[in-house]
Design a protein around this nucleic acid. Sequence first.
DNA 1: TATGAATGAGCCTTCATTCAT
DNA 2: TATGAATGAAGGCTCATTCAT
Lengths: 224, 224, 224, 224
Amino acid sequence: MRRGHRRQAVLDAARVVFAERGYHAASVANIIEEARIARGTFYLYFESKRAVFSELVDQFLAALRNSVKGLKIGREENPPHEQLRANFSRVLALLGEEPEMAVILLDHAHGLDEESDRKLLEFYDQMAHGLERALEAGRALGLVSIEDTEIAARAVLGGLKEVVRFLTIHGGEPRDHERLVDDLLRVTLRGVLDGPMKQLLEPVLSPLPSLDVEDEETGAGDER
Amino acid sequence: MRRGHRRQAVLDAARVVFAERGYHAASVANIIEEARIARGTFYLYFESKRAVFSELVDQFLAALRNSVKGLKIGREENPPHEQLRANFSRVLALLGEEPEMAVILLDHAHGLDEESDRKLLEFYDQMAHGLERALEAGRALGLVSIEDTEIAARAVLGGLKEVVRFLTIHGGEPRDHERLVDDLLRVTLRGVLDGPMKQLLEPVLSPLPSLDVEDEETGAGDER
Amino acid sequence: MRRGHRRQAVLDAARVVFAERGYHAASVANIIEEARIARGTFYLYFESKRAVFSELVDQFLAALRNSVKGLKIGREENPPHEQLRANFSRVLALLGEEPEMAVILLDHAHGLDEESDRKLLEFYDQMAHGLERALEAGRALGLVSIEDTEIAARAVLGGLKEVVRFLTIHGGEPRDHERLVDDLLRVTLRGVLDGPMKQLLEPVLSPLPSLDVEDEETGAGDER
Amino acid sequence: MRRGHRRQAVLDAARVVFAERGYHAASVANIIEEARIARGTFYLYFESKRAVFSELVDQFLAALRNSVKGLKIGREENPPHEQLRANFSRVLALLGEEPEMAVILLDHAHGLDEESDRKLLEFYDQMAHGLERALEAGRALGLVSIEDTEIAARAVLGGLKEVVRFLTIHGGEPRDHERLVDDLLRVTLRGVLDGPMKQLLEPVLSPLPSLDVEDEETGAGDER
DNA sequence: TATGAATGAGCCTTCATTCAT
DNA sequence: TATGAATGAAGGCTCATTCAT
């Protein structure tokens, strides 16, 4: 059996097992059983249980990174919202294709060790920063009104994550891909979008979150 | 030392240790060291390591549940968006006050056992259903346009979770509470809000997510 | 509460608990619960769990010893077999009155530590020696034919023990005391064979135990 | 090292350790030290400390059962007393060959858990029932006079057990096997009384166990 | 390269005993 | 004398990793 082939088989088995049981509950025994190899063989291809896990996560994070393109603004480029939509679509497609990795990433990749945590944090930071830059660009163009783009970016990121978790882990009813992308984009963008119509919207939006000075809800009584 | 006092001390120590290292990396040895008690004393108050963890999570979930009030619609009630804002405010305040529990809940409470997973899932389901009902109510009033309220609710929930994770775990710069609540509400509501001003907004929104028939983006470029 | 009274209460509780669960499965917690005293109180009266157990056993062994009288031969004395019968009767009565102690002695008093084992061994040795001396006296009088009186004594002792175990632990149907004593004495003194056919059997039996020189049974085929 | 070989080595070590210290005082540490294996190796072959112990006992009980043959009556069969003698001989030989198992069985196998207790009790019940059937057969043939065959069977069983205990645990002087078997058989079948004086004694003995119909001893004077 | 028996550090838990009140 | 919270030694068991074949 070709070396690379065997190695991949271990990765595949590990992915299934980790997704099913999480990092700690998954034992090397489970993995070699799934991969139908001997104990020692496992360590011929991977240094440790942690190493397989890390490789799975690293590979997948790389794929996710690759599926996200930085927004480019220019006459020849697609309009920003289309670029954003394409990113959403690719990311959701990737996660949909690899539900095991979605589970692993969302539920089991945290808190294993400093190194892994750092890498994961870095990844989400990158994603968030990408979104943030897009929002800031939007602000510069007068399309985005929200000031705290860092928070907004995290919220958008979190919305994506939770929807994926809902669909893959919670067993939510599968959605049509295009429609799902649209819905997410709408929820996301209509929240931050703004523009020349802002004035018209104000009557609707302003009563909402006490944006205005004369709004006197002191928030008192809201604490538990 | 009063019995309840000592028990609380163990809970406090456990909270710190679990937040710092996660459930598995945290040993009973760590907890009793933090609590400065003997090994046996720990088991005087808790049946097992799992039991302390569960109690921490259960208590906190209960507090979170209590901090969320179902939206009531009526003349004497506050307007829905204010009720929603109050919920956001209370939840964020609670999580802000107990950052350790936020860490535990968001990063370490998954995948420990079926029972715990079920409880956690149930909790998030409840929160999501609450939001969903609110959205559906909004739709009935013509305020909310998005159809897939289930997805929208999950997205909102995820936004909240991720922002909390960002602020407590990723070490994001702390925000002013009121402003944070406002921002989250804006991101959330402007995404789902709709109403009489919709027509005016269409020129801005319609090019976005291929809502219109004549929109010809075939989804090309979505492939990964 | 008088000191002795309280102490006795602990002993009583311990007896019940030890008989029910055995030495190891019985915890100090069980005993104090049964005695309805506090943990510390237990140690006011006894040095250790082992100490209570030892005291129970020692007391009972003493009682057993007291119930056994050495056989006296003389004109004014009862005939030996009556003295033996009386001993059997008293021992069985005592064990019957304290089934818990019978259980403890027969099933749970072995192998706890060197010291206790020695005492127990000593006790059984004494009992066996008493029987042995009786048998030897019988031999001197030509009443007892068996040569290995040590083995015979142990066999008799074992018969007694097993019958008691059967009646108290195995839940054997209770017997009428007098009849039981008689039966045990008969089995012991005359064996199980009897009846009008006894004389006829003698020719069959006598070659049995290779008492005779001309006995040619090679015993071949009996080994496994 | 062959798998079965290592497993047997663990069993051997465990047998020695359990016989020496009893079940509770024996630790897995003791066993692996005796077997000169690592901690984990022990659990490679046995599920638990209890499991090794049970296997030892179960195996030995099975061997004992196999060494006992039901008595068969018929022209071609050996006479019953020879069959009985053969059984005694085989059982004693087996116990003599495995003194550790004798110790374990007699002193340490009680009271560990319900399941084990049940099995042990069952074993002794089987042995006792075997003896009982033999006695009943004897009664039918007019060879056995004792009525309470259940008690008699237990007494015989107990005699055997105690003699084995004496020889293996109490450190009794080893006996010649054939002679020992004979002696036990004699004690069992004919009791300890014998000799030319037997006939003379009959008038003395017979009033004892109320064998005779016309015997009117009311049991007076026997009470303790 | 492949195997799987062997290893041993480490963890959770129990429970007899102590001690401050 | 009585209490019961606190103690900590000790033991059973798991499982990632190693190594001889």
